[in-house]
Computed example of a mutant assay.
Amino acid sequence: MDSGAIRRRPRRRLALAAAVLAVSGAFALTATGTAQAAGPAGGCAGREVKTLPFKTGVTHVYKRNGYICAVTVARTPGPLRTMSVSVQARGNRPVVDKGRFRQHAGPVTVHAGRRCVWIKGSVGRYSVSSGWILC
């Protein structure tokens, strides 16, 4: 090897390190912006287009640029209990977030375009189902 090749390797490593640092900084800025936009909705962006209340909770539905996002929020946050939220664009399978949570299930986002969507939400043994909406 000549001495020129040896001198170029540190430059390549430095360039790679700078690129990794720049990309990680961009992700950090993106995550911060998303968190600020999320607010009380639990992570959904866009405007609220539907509220589906039921005895133990509320499922909020948001729309932005053809994407539908939903989150189910318990009326009284507290102990772990079974919660779920589901969004299904017509012609596709539902996207579901189900588990044991204290405050909310979701957010769940799907690209619906101009298709109808079916939203479901549950907290404990009570639930709500929208039928086909936003057509």
Score class of each variant (00 low, 15 high):
1 M>Y: 15
2 D>G: 14
3 S>V: 14
4 G>Q: 14
6 I>Y: 15
6 I>R: 15
10 P>R: 06
10 P>Y: 03
11 R>C: 03
13 R>K: 11
15 A>E: 13
18 A>T: 10
21 L>C: 04
22 A>E: 09
22 A>R: 08
24 S>W: 06
25 G>T: 12
26 A>I: 15
26 A>G: 10
27 F>G: 08
28 A>L: 05
33 G>D: 06
34 T>A: 05
37 A>Y: 02
39 G>D: 12
44 C>I: 11
44 C>N: 09
44 C>K: 06
45 A>H: 12
48 E>R: 15
49 V>K: 04
50 K>L: 11
50 K>D: 07
50 K>S: 11
51 T>M: 06
55 K>G: 04
56 T>Q: 11
57 G>N: 09
58 V>P: 06
59 T>K: 02
59 T>E: 09
61 V>A: 01
61 V>F: 00
62 Y>F: 15
62 Y>L: 09
63 K>D: 08
64 R>P: 06
65 N>Y: 10
65 N>H: 07
66 G>I: 02
66 G>C: 03
67 Y>I: 05
67 Y>M: 09
69 C>N: 12
69 C>D: 12
70 A>M: 07
72 T>I: 08
72 T>R: 00
72 T>A: 07
73 V>S: 09
74 A>T: 12
76 T>S: 11
76 T>C: 00
76 T>H: 13
78 G>S: 07
79 P>F: 07
79 P>K: 10
80 L>Q: 10
80 L>E: 08
81 R>F: 03
83 M>N: 07
85 V>Y: 08
86 S>T: 09
88 Q>D: 08
89 A>M: 01
90 R>I: 06
91 G>C: 06
93 R>I: 04
96 V>T: 15
97 D>Q: 08
99 G>W: 05
99 G>N: 07
99 G>R: 04
100 R>N: 14
100 R>I: 04
101 F>G: 07
102 R>M: 05
103 Q>L: 02
103 Q>K: 14
104 H>M: 08
105 A>T: 05
106 G>W: 01
106 G>H: 01
108 V>F: 10
111 H>W: 10
111 H>V: 01
113 G>F: 00
115 R>M: 02
116 C>L: 02
117 V>Q: 01
121 G>E: 06
121 G>C: 03
121 G>T: 02
122 S>C: 03
122 S>G: 10
122 S>Y: 00
126 Y>H: 13
128 V>H: 00
129 S>V: 05
129 S>L: 01
129 S>I: 04
130 S>I: 00
130 S>K: 00
132 W>Y: 14
133 I>P: 01
